[in-house]
């Protein structure tokens, strides 16, 4: 079982302790498995549940077997009553509550017996839920249901919540009595095994957005200044008969052109490793099986990529600056720069 946070454990222990009327420390010790099972003052309260759990099956006294079997003719009959009950109670109005209470016939309206146990802390329902419900209901069978005392609106609300449940009185129980049905058993693990770790987070707006806006302004500023200062090149009109010397590809392909100038493409087949390299590049995440993202764990990957980066940068810089007439080696400070993209800016020759 996963670690339950101390605060949660304590809270549920307090709830259970309050419900059973025993010291908190005893319950806590029991939950942690350090102490003996808690002795509960009431003899009928069971102790078999390890943790306080709302939906843990309560001991159903006597009525349990009957509950499973519901006669079909009884199934439909109480439902409209429940709905009528709901309608009445959804709007908690004082006058309606009064007439509801004055009604001498308890039959059409199931008495609001459940509010009593439901209003208690949820843990309390565990030990005494059903007996209390039965007891109150039996008492109210003899006399008309008492008007909700004091906080009428609040009681009405709870009653509506309870009666909205499709709980059908089982056959065999006294008239007007509705007992709880077991819908599901929720294991403690399901709600207490909290996976998400609390992390240090900030709102995207404004923190991230402000930074993004700053970056956007910065790049726009750089671009506008660059566009004012450096003009795009426009050389002579295209002429198929006048090959410029040197002929250079766009700068992002110059590294490749540089590579091709070392090895004749037809003989050395530079493009074969290039294309293979591209394929490997796409497959990087499938080839790199190392799950760590810590730099010290991925020295090989980082070294490899850095080599690729350095190689590409070197080849590109050589292609841009150090290649002159006939794509031969040239020093930019001696022979000038042969890079027409920046012709307007550099004013070479």
């Amino acid at each position: 079982m996963a670690e339950i946070p101390e605060s949660l454990l304590r809270r549920s222990a307090e709830a259970k302790a309050k419900a059973l009327g025993v010291p908190v420390e005893d319950v806590l010790a029991e939950m942690k498995g350090e102490g003996p099972p808690v002795k509960v003052p009431q003899p009928e309260a069971e102790e078999k549940t390890e943790t306080v759990e709302v939906s843990e099956a309560p001991e159903e006294p006597a009525t349990e077997p009957v509950e499973e079997v519901e006669p079909p003719e009884d199934k439909d009959a109480p439902t409209p009553e429940v709905e009528a009950d709901t309608d009445q109670d959804v709007i908690p109005e004082e006058p309606k509550e009064a007439t509801y209470a004055d009604d001498p016939d308890p039959d059409p309206v199931p008495p609001p017996a459940e509010p009593a146990p439901e209003q208690q802390p949820v843990a309390a329902a565990e030990s005494e839920e059903t007996p209390a419900a039965v007891a109150i209901a039996e008492k109210e069978d003899e006399e008309p249901p008492a008007p909700p005392s004091g906080n009428g609106a609040g009681n009405g609300k709870v009653a509506s919540v309870v009666s909205a449940r499709p709980s059908v009185p089982p056959a065999g129980t006294p008239e007007g009595v509705r007992s709880q049905r077991l819908l599901t058993v929720v294991k403690a693990r399901a709600i207490q095994n909290v996976k998400a770790e609390p992390t240090d987070k900030v709102n995207t707006w404004p923190h991230l957005m402000l930074m993004e806006f700053g970056a956007l302004l910065l790049i726009t500023g750089i671009l506008v200044i660059m566009s004012i200062v450096i003009h795009s090149p426009l050389l002579d009109p295209a002429n198929f008969n006048a090959t410029p010397n040197p002929s250079k590809a766009p700068w992002y392909f110059l590294g490749l052109q540089e590579l091709l100038s070392y090895f004749d493409p037809q003989i050395a087949g530079v493009m074969v490793p290039t294309v293979t390299g591209m394929a490997l590049f796409i497959l990087v995440p499938y080839l790199d099986k190392n799950p760590s993202t810590t730099p010290s764990d991925r020295k090989f990957a980082i070294a490899l990529y850095s080599m690729f980066l350095a190689g590409a940068a070197t080849l590109t810089i050589i292609g841009v600056l150090f290649r002159g007439l006939g794509f031969n080696w040239a020093y930019p400070w001696q022979d000038g720069i042969f890079f027409d993209d920046l012709k307007d800016w550099v004013h070479f020759e």
Partner: peptide
């Protein structure tokens, strides 16, 4: 222009 034509050719 010449730059465009020959860069694309290369």
């Amino acid at each position: 222009d010449q730059l465009a034509l020959w860069a694309v050719t290369v």
